[in-house]
Amino acid sequence: MDKSILSLKLKEYRKQKGHTQEELAELLDVSDKSISKWELGNGYPSKKNMMKISELLDVSLEVLMIEEQAEDTRLKRSFKYALVSYFIIISLTILIRGIKEADRYKDILSSDVSEIIKIVIINFGQNIYIAIVPALIIGLVSHFYLIPRQEAD
């Protein structure tokens, strides 16, 4: 696991207060291995322990919880990438299939609006599943690769 904001902050604030890992562990009623694990970014304290840490180290809970907020933002951004990708892929699929099957739609403009809407909905329904897999792949790639690289820069 990478070093998290929480792990870096926890170690920094613990040292500012002059506590060792053992002392903080005793105050929190956890093992010193738990403190070490949290500071290395290999785990997170429970909400109850987060509240105790906040009190003991005189650090607001919001500062300690910033990591969770960053993770939420990352998930939302990944979902947006996947959703936008989905609509782009579905639009291109419908466009390409429309061009390939141009003979089928050559008299579409002479049809009434309800018939045009019906054709569009049917085409959308026939092509809706084609874009799901590529959009999911794009969303996952952005979540695990692109967004962390952007955050590192």
Rank of each mutant, 00 (worst) to 15 (best):
D2K: 12
D2L: 07
S4I: 05
S4Y: 09
L6N: 13
L6Q: 13
S7E: 03
S7K: 05
L8R: 00
K9M: 09
L10P: 06
K11T: 07
K15M: 14
K17F: 08
G18A: 06
H19P: 02
T20V: 05
T20W: 04
T20D: 02
Q21A: 06
E22H: 09
E22G: 02
E23S: 03
E23Q: 02
L24E: 02
A25I: 05
E26F: 04
L27R: 03
V30P: 01
V30T: 02
D32P: 07
D32C: 05
K33H: 07
K33S: 10
I35E: 01
I35H: 01
S36E: 14
S36Y: 13
N42C: 07
N42F: 12
N42I: 11
Y44S: 04
S46R: 04
K47H: 11
K47F: 09
N49K: 09
M51W: 05
M51H: 06
K52T: 02
S54Y: 12
E55F: 03
L57T: 00
D58V: 03
S60T: 08
S60G: 02
E62V: 11
V63P: 01
M65A: 08
I66Q: 13
E68A: 10
Q69Y: 13
Q69W: 11
L75H: 09
L75K: 14
K76C: 03
R77D: 07
S78K: 10
S78P: 09
F79Q: 14
F79S: 12
Y81H: 12
Y81L: 10
A82Y: 04
A82Q: 04
V84L: 08
Y86W: 13
F87M: 11
L92H: 05
L92S: 03
I96D: 01
I99Q: 03
K100N: 15
A102F: 11
D103C: 01
D103W: 10
Y105D: 02
K106Q: 15
L109T: 05
S111N: 13
D112H: 15
D112G: 13
D112T: 04
S114C: 11
E115K: 14
E115H: 15
K118V: 00
V120S: 06
V120A: 13
I121E: 12
I122G: 07
I122R: 09
N123Q: 12
F124V: 09
G125S: 06
G125I: 00
N127A: 03
N127H: 10
Y129M: 01
I130Q: 08
I130F: 15
I130C: 12
I132H: 07
V133K: 10
P134S: 07
A135D: 05
L136G: 15
L136Y: 12
I137G: 04
G139V: 00
G139F: 01
Y145Q: 06
P148W: 10
Q150D: 08
Q150P: 02
A152L: 12
D153K: 14
